[in-house]
């Protein structure tokens, strides 16, 4: 079943088109990422799902029911906020039980459910503390428990890991993923970190200028970017200009080529080109080399077993034709 459906949804703020005619279908039980730079419309899409914003055009359905005109408090959808938005005047347990309290669940029952939710996010016994006494990572878990205790049909996460340090972030990525699998709740999360989107999501929508540039699996988006923007934003693919691509015997289109698909020298069935080294650095596991070839700058990850080429040296590089991915547009 479709959990969230957007049909030609727009949200304009005056002349600013924050979200512009977006079509989207998120399946039930999916871990869905909305990826894009700030101002790309991903957060506004999330807010449209939560009900904090209303579309200026189009139609939104949540599990088949019309969502426009429905206030956030009447949607069985919960949000983990970027700044966590824990209520500072309530204890952790009261924070977690809040959703059940306003729905009129009896006190004993809701406190029990809140304790269980805290245990689920590995914070048992923290109920009596105040939000101010917790670390960033702990607050994040509380925000998660506070949302999940309501058993939402869709959980929205707004840059959930943005404020955490690297180590904590990697740990939480795994935990979120396993939590999502065990609960079976549809997760929709917003991020500007492509690594996070690629490692966690079942599918990714890449946003730019209020529109979805590409929607697909992490592998799709990473290996077969549809547009220059996606190739630029996701991963570190080379975007090759149409003339360069044509010169290698392909159609006159922009194309993307991942640096790790490029090797030094030539081989059978490979396409080769030569270029002058403009920068080279040793990264441990590989050497990263940038060459200038036919007016294009191409980055390549070369095996570390070969010594780093000198700057100014002309070298020959090659790749397998199936690794070259043609994109839309010739401009």
């Amino acid at each position: 079943m479709t959990a969230v459906l957007f049909q030609q949804v727009s949200r304009h703020f005056g002349a600013v088109r924050a979200v512009d005619s977006v079509d989207l279908a998120i399946a039930e039980g999916e871990f869905f990422a909305m990826l894009g730079p700030s101002g790309s419309g991903k957060t506004t899409c999330l807010r449209l799902m939560a009900g904090f914003e209303q579309p200026t055009g189009g139609h939104i359905e949540i599990f088949g029911e019309t969502a426009e005109g429905v206030p956030p408090y009447r949607r069985n959808v919960n949000t983990v906020f970027q700044d966590y938005a824990l209520f500072p005047h309530l204890s952790i347990l009261e924070n977690v039980a809040y959703g059940l309290m306003v729905k009129g669940v009896a006190k004993a029952e809701r406190l029990k459910a809140a304790e269980e939710a805290l245990a689920m996010v590995k914070l048992p016994g923290y109920g009596t503390r105040r939000p101010g006494q917790l670390s960033g990572g702990q607050r994040q878990r509380v925000a998660l428990a506070r949302a999940l205790v309501n058993r939402p049909r869709v959980l929205l996460l707004d840059e959930p890991l943005g404020a955490l340090d690297l180590k904590l972030r990697e740990q939480m990525q795994e935990e979120l993923k396993s939590l999502q699998k065990s609960l079976g709740i549809t997760f929709v999360f917003v991020t500007h970190d492509q690594g996070e989107a690629l490692s966690m999501a079942d599918r990714i929508a890449v946003f730019s200028d209020g529109k979805i540039q590409q929607l697909g699996t992490p592998e799709d988006v990473y290996k077969r970017p549809k547009t220059r923007f996606v190739a630029d934003f996701v991963g570190s693919s080379n975007v090759l200009p149409p003339d360069f691509v044509e010169g290698l015997g392909f159609g006159k289109h922009y194309a993307s080529l991942r640096p790790e698909a490029i090797d030094l020298g030539d081989g059978p069935g490979r396409k080769q080109f030569s270029g002058r080294v403009t920068a080279a650095s040793f990264l441990g596991a590989a050497n990263r080399v940038t060459v200038e070839a036919n007016g294009a700058r191409v980055a390549a990850m070369l095996s570390a077993s070969i010594s780093v080429p000198a700057q100014g040296e002309t070298i020959t590089l090659s790749f397998l034709p199936q690794d070259l991915h043609m994109m839309d547009g010739t401009q």
Binding site: I62, F63, G64, E65, A67, V70, P71, Y73, R74, R75, N76, V77, V102, K103, G104, E116, A117, M120, L148, V149, R151, R153, V154, S182, L183, G184, I185
Partner: peptide, 23 residues
Amino acid sequence: MSTVSGTSILTGRQGLSGRLSDF
């Protein structure tokens, strides 16, 4: 907390205050 069920749109608080809040 292993099953997900219920509707996506909640009926919520009915009565005057609920309707007033919606309004």
